[in-house]
């Protein structure tokens, strides 16, 4: 009986606890945080996610622009070189392998 009364008193004690006053700087802290949040919202361009995404996009575009012309020009260069060699050997009627073969055969 005494125990029940004591426990009931503890439970009811919460209603007697004095309410606390928050720090006098609380209001200014909230207003400062709000001002900071508002300025962050306007400068979304500088958010890390945006910056990383933009950098990745820039890298991708650059890679595409750089790699395509090089591969095309490489192929055309190779074609030019081989066509020049062919033209030169045709002009002078030179077939390297056959010349050597006939020369050896005569020996």
């Amino acid at each position: 009986m005494k125990q029940d009364k004591y426990i009931d008193d503890i439970i009811e004690y919460i209603s007697t606890i004095e309410k606390q006053k928050i720090s006098p700087f609380f209001k200014s802290k909230v207003l400062a945080r709000l001002a900071k949040n508002t300025s962050e919202e306007t400068s979304f361009v500088f958010k890390p996610a945006f910056v990383i995404a933009f950098a990745a996009l820039l890298l991708l575009v650059n890679t595409i622009l750089i790699s395509y012309p090089i591969s095309n020009s490489d192929t055309s260069n190779q074609n030019n070189v081989s066509s020049t060699e062919q033209e030169w050997s045709d002009d002078y009627s030179i077939n390297n392998y056959s010349s050597i073969y006939f020369y050896d055969d005569k020996q």
């Binding site: 309410k19 606390q20 006053k21 928050i22 945080r33 709000l34 949040n37």
Partner: peptide
Amino acid sequence: HMVYNSILNIVQHEQDAEDLSQEVFI
């Protein structure tokens, strides 16, 4: 004060209660 006291009863830590009270007003 109402927000602070309500939070203080839950989180049971004065500094955390103040930080969360700021969060509530935001």
